[in-house]
Design a protein around this nucleic acid. Structure first.
Lengths: 240, 240
DNA sequence: CGGAGCCTTGAGATTTATCAAGGGTAGTGG
DNA sequence: CCACTACCCTTGATAAATCTCAAGGCTCCG
C-alpha cells in the first residue's frame, strides 16, 4: 500500500479521516520543475504544500553562498506543517526532481483538525517525527564521521520510503547527486565520493542511475548507528 | 517583564490565557539536581515539563559513549511540547544546573488548547520556533567553522534569554562548561577552549564564572552569521 | 591539606578540505 | 549520425582544520 501523505500513515486514523484528507489533496495541485524553489527564505507561504510525487529539500544558504540541506522532503511529506502558520519562513524549500505538490488551504486543514481529534493527533505526530528527524541530523553532523553520516542518510531514506510503500525489496529511488549528498552531510563532494566508493567496495550498497540498493542492511545500520526510533514507526501503519 | 513560560511570550495571548497557563504551572513542581536525567531515552514521559528555572539540554548518546547536545532548554521552555504525546522519547533530557520544572498533565494542556484558539496557536508557534532552532543547529554543524559555531551559540542564548527578560544589558547567565559547549558544537573541549580564547582576545565576549558578557554584539553576530529570524520574535512580546 | 573539576597549553596525528584535471554519459543541434 | 556541451563522477597531490594525547595549573570545597 502506498500512502499519499504522511498523515495517511498515522495508525489511529479512520477511513473517514483518510477520505477527508484525500479530498483536500485533490483540490489543487501543481507540478514544479527540478532545482526550483518552492518556498523562498523569508516568504510567507500561502498554502500547506504536500509532496505527492518527487523529492525536495529544505535548505539554508549563508550570504557567502555556502548551502546546507536541512531535511529531505519525500513523497507524502508536508512542507509547511503548520495549519495556523502564516509565518515568514526561516529557510527555503527547493525541488530536487520534478515534483507534484498539493496546495492545501491552511484554514481547510485547520478546520479538519478541529473536526477530527485523530487528524489533530496525526498532525502532531507528523511534527514529532519531523523534529526527531532533525535531531538525528544534528547528532549525525555533530558526532558521526563522514562515512557514518552518509550511511545514516541512506538508512533514513530507505526506511522512510519503505514506510510509505515506495521500496522494491532492498532497492529504492535515490535521485540526489553526490553534490547534494555533500550539502546534506556537511562534507565536500570530493570526500563524499570517496566515502561512497568505500561503502560500495565494502559491499554495503549499490548506487547508480537514480537507484539505491542496500546490499547489507544490518551492516549499513551498524555503520550508521541507525535505529529507526526517531521515525516513530510504532504509530504508523506499515506499508510492508 | 519576565515570562514564566515561552507560551506566555506569544503576542496574541489574552490575560485570561496567561492566567490559565499560570494555573497549570502551579499545580505541581519539582526541583532536580544538576547533571541528572529528566527524561531518559526510550521513556514515555508522563508529564509535559516546563522549565521554570535553571538550564537543561536535550541530548543523544551513541552506544560507544559519544554524546551530542541537541538543544538547550532555558527557563520557560517546554520540554515535551506535545499535548497529545504519550510517545516514547527518541532522546534524553538532562539538567545542566539545578532546575525547577512544572509538571503539567498532558490532558490538561490539551484541554486548554481546545478551549482557547490562541493557546493552540501558541503551542504551534512554540513548536515552530523549536524546529527553527534545530534547523539552525543543523546549519551550524554542517557549514560553520568551529569559531562560527561557538559564536552562534552565544548569540542564540543571548537572544533567547533576552526575549524572556533574563538579560542585564549585554550580560546573561551561561552556566555551560567548555566540555558542554564542545558537546553542543560537535567539537573537542580542547578546540573549544582555543576558539573561546580567540573570541575573548578579539574583544567580542567576556565569559567567566557563569556569566557571559557580549562586548561587541554586531561583530559577534557577524562572525556567527546570526540573524534571529528563526526565533520568530515578531510574534513574541518583547521583554525589553 | 587534599581532591575534584575545570581550564589551559604544547606537540604530533588524523580527518577532511582544496585545488586541479580528466573521463563518462546523456542530451542537443547540425 | 556525429560533434558538442553540460553535468556528474573520479582521481591525485597538497593544505588546513580539528582531534588526540599528555601534562600542568587554578579554584572551590570538604
Amino acid at each position: 500500500m502506498r500512502y499519499r501523505s504522511r498523515l495517511h500513515a498515522f495508525s489511529e486514523l479512520t477511513d473517514a479521516d483518510r477520505t477527508a484528507i484525500d479530498a483536500l489533496l485533490d483540490q489543487r495541485q501543481r507540478v514544479i520543475a527540478p532545482r526550483r524553489d518552492v518556498v523562498a527564505e523569508g516568504e510567507v507561504p500561502r498554502f500547506v504544500h504536500v509532496v505527492l510525487d518527487g523529492w525536495a529539500c529544505r535548505y539554508r544558504q549563508l550570504s557567502d553562498g555556502r548551502r546546507q540541506l536541512l531535511s529531505l522532503l519525500l513523497p507524502g511529506d508536508l512542507i509547511d506543517p503548520y495549519p495556523q502558520a502564516v509565518a515568514r519562513s526561516d529557510h527555503a524549500v527547493g525541488t530536487i526532481t520534478t515534483m507534484t505538490v498539493a496546495e492545501v488551504a491552511p484554514d481547510a486543514l485547520a478546520a479538519l483538525g478541529r473536526e477530527s481529534a485523530t487528524i489533530a493527533r496525526a498532525l502532531w505526530w507528523n511534527n514529532h517525527v519531523a523534529m526527531g528527524t532533525q535531531r538525528e541530523w544534528i547528532a549525525s553532523l555533530g558526532l558521526r564521521s563522514a562515512r557514518e553520516r552518509i550511511a545514516l542518510l541512506f538508512c533514513e531514506v530507505y526506511f522512510r520510503l519503505r514506510t510509505s510503500g515506495r521500496c522494491m525489496g532492498r532497492a529504492c529511488e535515490f535521485p540526489l547527486t553526490q553534490a547534494d549528498l555533500a550539502e546534506a552531510t556537511g562534507l565536500t563532494p570530493v570526500h563524499v565520493n570517496r566515502m561512497v566508493q568505500e561503502l560500495r567496495r565494502d559491499g554495503l550498497i549499490a548506487w547508480g542511475g537514480r537507484t539505491l540498493t542496500i546490499l547489507d542492511l544490518d551492516a549499513l545500520c551498524g555503520v550508521a548507528s541507525f535505529t529507526p526510533a526517531y521515525l516513530h514507526l510504532d504509530r504508523a501503519v506499515s506499508a510492508g
